[in-house]
């Protein structure tokens, strides 16, 4: 390989002095070799090797302190989840319960699986762009952390909640923001507390419109467009095919008028590790 083709990152400067430098090459492995060529010696060595293994396991059985089992649900109190652990996506609210989301939609755009859907208030209280619902689909999330990385306002972070098992898949669709309304910066400019209150509308984790409904609307629009294309004979897919693929996307039939009838908001127990999407009042 010629020098001009070497990836520039392959030889970063500045570390050569610290590290011992390249050395070493191919070494033949033999490993702990048991020569079992002789007959009597073979039996003796074989038995010795077996006893060696039994010594290892015997040492552990003799010392119960080597047990590493954790008694999981009982040790919730002492369980320490690292702060960077990607459990449940959380939406940052400040001390007043205000968020900083400006609906720039970078996270929605960068999410590889489209597991974030943001809806905008039709008519903002203070500005044109105000957050209505920030919807996170845990069922589609791969926990790649990209949304957290790209958010310019540090609104998103991953919390430690890892106990996200539910019996109904639709319960994996969360609304993360505590209220629909303008950002903390705008609200703090309002001197009147009542004006602030009026600008905000509370949201809870399972309030509508859920992402499924939002997607259903998008799908309906796309189906219309596809039908129009098919009528002109330019679409790759037949409307029937579209119907089929649409049916596979959603667990519930579309379209649903009004809020999708998800089961009533399950009271999320506030135990450590549970999904605490509603951590603001």
């Amino acid at each position: 390989m010629s020098d001009d083709l070497v990836h520039p990152a392959a030889t970063p400067a500045g570390t050569a002095a610290l590290l011992p430098g390249p050395s070493g090459g191919a070494v033949a492995v033999a490993g702990p070799w048991l020569d079992t060529a002789g007959s009597v010696g073979a039996v003796r060595k074989g038995i010795a090797s077996l006893l060696g293994g039994m010594r290892v396991t015997g040492r552990y059985v003799a010392r119960p302190s080597t047990v590493v089992t954790q008694h999981y649900p009982e040790n919730r109190e002492t369980l320490r989840v690292p702060e960077r652990f990607r459990g449940a996506l959380r939406f940052h609210h400040d001390a007043d319960g205000y968020h900083g989301c400006t609906v720039c939609r970078i996270c929605e755009d960068q999410c590889p699986n489209r597991s974030i859907v943001i809806t905008q208030r039709e008519k903002g209280a203070l500005t044109k762009k105000e957050l209505d619902t920030f919807i996170w689909r845990l069922d589609a999330c791969t926990f790649c952390n990209t949304c957290v990385m790209v958010c310019p306002f540090n609104v998103l972070h991953f919390g430690p909640g890892f106990e996200s098992a539910v019996y109904d898949r639709r319960l994996l669709v969360y609304t993360l923001n505590g209220y629909a309304g303008p950002t903390a910066a705008l609200l703090n400019k309002q001197a009147d507390p009542d004006a602030r209150k009026a600008a905000c509308e509370p949201r809870d984790p399972f309030c509508g419109p859920t992402v499924l409904q939002a997607l259903a609307e998008k799908r309906a629009a796309r189906r219309k467009a596809a039908e129009a294309e098919a009528a002109q004979g330019v679409g790759l897919k037949s409307p029937a095919a579209f119907e089929k693929s649409a049916a596979r996307t959603a667990p519930d039939p579309v379209p649903v008028p009004g809020p999708v009838p998800v089961p009533a908001p399950v009271p999320v127990p506030t135990q450590p590790g549970s999904v605490e999407a509603a951590d603001v009042g």
Partner: peptide, 28 residues
Amino acid sequence: YGLYGQVAFDVPVGSRGDCWDRYAVRMQ
């Protein structure tokens, strides 16, 4: 790549190509 050019290490190599060599290479 990375800093591999600047660290000392050996490359374990087997001789027969049997399961034992594959085992021993990984252990090394």
